[in-house]
Design a protein around this nucleic acid. Structure first.
Length: 348
DNA sequence: AAGCCGGGGCT
DNA sequence: AGCCCAGGCTT
């Protein structure tokens, strides 16, 4: 079927959504007024490449502590980064704060897709989602769920990412003028609960009678994706430096991997285990008989662990001396939190 | 256009 | 043990 022939998708999908919508904390209650744009924006940024179940506790924590753009704009960088710790993609947290401050300075968040697109951390998907969900505008909202649903509906055989322009055109062809926000969220709920990646539950889907992918008998083969390269293996060492029941934490550079986050000191990471080569200073290091393994987006990391206790008067690199008993409150990214647990077990 | 950027859930 | 995810920014 050519792209310019509309299908009756929106009406049955919205009917299904009215009966089966997920009850999520950033959504307005059924029958209520439009949702709070602050909550829509915050949830959309947290949900970038992050699943709903992971976001919910962070969303509750953030909205309780910072209930508005103004409140968030007044937060300090360090406390916001610590609150974001564990959620990943830390550039989102830096952009979140920059965006809140810009919105607070303008006294309100813009309502058009084009204006939203100019704010930090808001790209094409998020601008469309906020315009549709918070402000009821017709916008073509394409995320990974929509890509999966649409490539199945139309049995799109061309591979991602090259086929994205056509997916957008197909999504445009089924997006209604009214209730565009509900339509977008309905597509996401469908993609999350019915039109799932591995084993879609087609017989529970309100659209299976109109789905070319269902008709092929193998809907799970869509979307077609380009082959992925294997992740390289890299190695590093983390250093636990204790002085007077406190441990040395440093701040990672603002940009790059885990940028702007508190961390344990590390040497450079490379293709071979560096041992103590990158130690921050000479000391009586104890190499622990343990390793920490962690997967990042584009490489896997094996970390060796080294510990030293130094006397109270000893000079050491710049950083924060954090109470060992309270180190879990430092807001460390997960790879460092893993290492801290191992140090705590083997150092005690 | 391609690479960089986390972490956890699911199968 | 992979695959996946309510993507955006930088180069």
């Amino acid at each position: 079927m050519p792209d310019n022939v509309p299908r009756a998708i929106a009406a049955p999908l919205l009917k299904w959504y009215d009966a089966h919508a997920r009850d999520l904390p950033w959504r307005a209650r059924p029958g209520a007024n439009a949702p709070d744009p602050y909550r829509v924006w915050l949830s959309e940024v947290m949900l970038q490449q992050t699943q709903v179940a992971s976001v919910i506790p962070y969303f509750e924590k953030f909205t309780a502590r910072w209930p508005s753009f103004e409140a968030l704009a007044a937060a300090e960088d360090a406390e916001l980064m610590a609150a974001w710790a564990g959620l990943g993609y830390y550039a989102r947290a830096r952009n979140l704060l920059a965006c809140a401050r810009e919105v607070a300075a303008r006294a309100r968040i813009p309502e058009t897709e084009a204006e939203l697109l100019g704010l930090p951390g808001i790209g094409g998907y998020t601008a469309a989602a906020i315009a549709a969900i918070a402000f009821g505008q017709r916008a073509v909202v394409v995320d990974a769920n929509v890509e999966r649903v649409v490539t199945r509906l139309f049995a799109v055989t061309e591979p991602l990412p090259g086929v994205r322009p056509r997916i957008r055109s197909l999504t445009d062809s089924i997006t209604p003028d009214a209730r565009a926000g509900d339509f977008a969220q309905a597509m996401m709920d469908l993609g999350s609960g019915i039109c799932t990646p591995r084993a879609p539950r087609c017989l529970a889907c309100p659209l299976h009678g109109q789905c070319d992918g269902f008709a092929t008998g193998a809907p799970e083969t869509f979307p077609v994706k380009a082959a992925k390269l294997p992740k390289p293996q890299r190695y590093g060492t983390m250093f636990w430096i204790e002085r007077d029941h406190r441990v040395l934490l440093v701040r990672r550079p603002a940009k790059g991997l885990l940028g702007g986050m508190r961390a344990l000191p590390t040497g450079p990471w490379g293709d071979l285990p560096p041992g103590l080569a990158g130690a921050p200073f000479a000391a009586d290091w104890r190499l622990l008989d343990a390793q920490v393994r962690h997967g990042f987006t584009h490489f896997n990391l094996d970390v060796a662990l080294a510990a030293a206790t130094i006397a109270a008067h000893t000079d050491a690199p710049e950083g924060e001396w954090w109470p060992v008993a309270d180190v879990e409150a430092a807001g460390l990214p997960t790879v460092f939190a893993k290492a801290v647990r191992v140090f705590g077990r083997m150092h005690a």
